Simulated assay, not measured.
Amino acid sequence: MKILVIQQKMIGDVLTSSILFEALRKKYPEAELHYLIQPHTRPVVENNPYINKLVIYDPALNKNPVNFLFFGKQIRKEGYTHVIDIYSKISTGMISLFTGASCRLGYHKKYTSYFYTKTFTPVKEPATSAGLAIEDRMQFLQGLQKDFPKHSRPKIYLDNLQKKKAAVNLQAGGVSFEKPLIMCGVLGSSKNKSYPSSYMAALLDKMVAQVENCQILFNYSPCQEKEALAIYNHCTPVTRSRIFLELYARELQDFIANCATCDLFIGNEGGAANIAKALKIPSFSIHSPSVKKNYWGIYEDGDRNVSVHLKDFQKEALKGLSTKEITKNAAGFYELLEPNLIFAKLNPFLQKVILKKSEEKYL
């Protein structure tokens, strides 16, 4: 048995879809398991002991038919028996077909169903606390065998040397591990998934006022540096003195290592929040109004993993609106999600996590 799992695009998606490998390895210990991903997402699945091989797909192939066909011929030579295409777009559907695998699983869509031998529709209501993003992916395994578990937790297998190196670099930059260290995802993957700059700054000001001697690291994409600086400049002088802008990790693997040294994560829901959870770092996430909380609210427990959504405070605000309509007016809906509302839930989370850290220190 030789299985190819396909998941392109976003970091959070690639990390979340990696849960399939642990379940597959436990069920089929002798199987060869490959993961087709894009190069920028590689750090979140490196060192995963359940994956035999990472197949790196250059997205530029989508724009070059000749090179795409050549890739298809190379993939066919692998002799895959099964393909699980989580992405299920035209390009990955064609790759699934190129493999020649007798079992090809994908999402049911009018324009791609032809590529698969069996299709699945997205789960609408969660059956567990794992969240729809988890259950949606795990259902694909039912196409192989019926007794697979319904959920599994994403994990990042960080090399200890990477974490030690990150700790040394942070200490050299002035960070003290005797004080709370907070990773803040100040921006989401797009403007429509980013809490407004002035609101984020106000939230950080409130946090600094409540958490004595806290230290803050920023996370954002390198192309968002201007927006991140705007958030920094919106903060009070006291808050700015707690933010280590110069310790920003430009590379994903460095962010992962830095995050692993932190006491908690707060910020926009997305890849960074998913990484924190996979590292077992307590997380507090702010969902975009256009995203369903029960989809990406992975393993929410009201304790170590907490999140907020506009619907938590104003249930009627989004009623009857499509995702497209909400996204179009994302800025207006974000305005309704005022910092005071969020901090009412964030403060108890902060106190609990920091208090627990303090108690563990003196045990």
Rank of each mutant, 00 (worst) to 15 (best):
K345T: 07
V306D: 02
S96P: 02
P339S: 11
Y232P: 06
E78Q: 15
K165W: 10
R137F: 05
S176Q: 12
G297E: 06
D147M: 04
E22W: 00
T99L: 02
K356A: 14
L279V: 10
D303F: 07
L350Q: 09
I11L: 09
Q7S: 11
G270S: 13
K164P: 00
K124W: 03
C214E: 08
V83C: 07
Y220R: 00
P43R: 10
L264H: 04
F115E: 09
I326F: 04
H82I: 15
Y199H: 15
V5A: 15
H234E: 15
A344Y: 02
P43H: 08
S283Y: 06
P29H: 10
E316Y: 00
Q162Y: 12
I231Q: 05
E269Y: 06
T112F: 06
D13M: 03
L69A: 15
S96L: 01
V168A: 14
A276E: 11
Y157G: 10
N47G: 03
P65M: 03
F70W: 11
P149R: 02
D263T: 10
H234P: 02
E46H: 05
T121M: 14
T261C: 15
P122V: 09
I256A: 09
P149V: 08
D303N: 12
L170R: 06
L252K: 05
T16V: 14
S17L: 04
C223W: 12
S102F: 00
C235P: 02
K293T: 07
M138R: 04
K280W: 09
L4R: 05
S176A: 13
S96E: 03
S91G: 01
E178I: 13
S283R: 13
S322G: 09
D85R: 05
K293P: 01
T261G: 01
I275A: 11
Q7R: 15
E32F: 12
Q162M: 14
S285K: 14
C103E: 08
P59M: 03
L247W: 00
P126C: 09
L217R: 03
H234L: 09
F98E: 02
Q139W: 12
Q74D: 13
G188N: 04
R250A: 14
R137P: 01
G302Y: 01
E338P: 00
C259F: 12
K293A: 13
H309P: 06
T128I: 10
D205K: 07
I56D: 04
S194D: 02
G131T: 07
V211S: 05
Y35R: 11
P348N: 05
F265S: 12
F98C: 09
E269R: 11
D205A: 07
D254G: 04
I51R: 07
R240D: 01
F21Q: 10
F265D: 12
K191G: 08
P222Q: 11
H82G: 04
A257D: 08
R25L: 06
Y114I: 11
D13S: 08
E251L: 13
Y299Q: 05
E360I: 06
A260E: 08
W296S: 06
Y87D: 12
T261K: 10
T92G: 07
Q142D: 14
K293S: 12
H34L: 04
R240T: 02
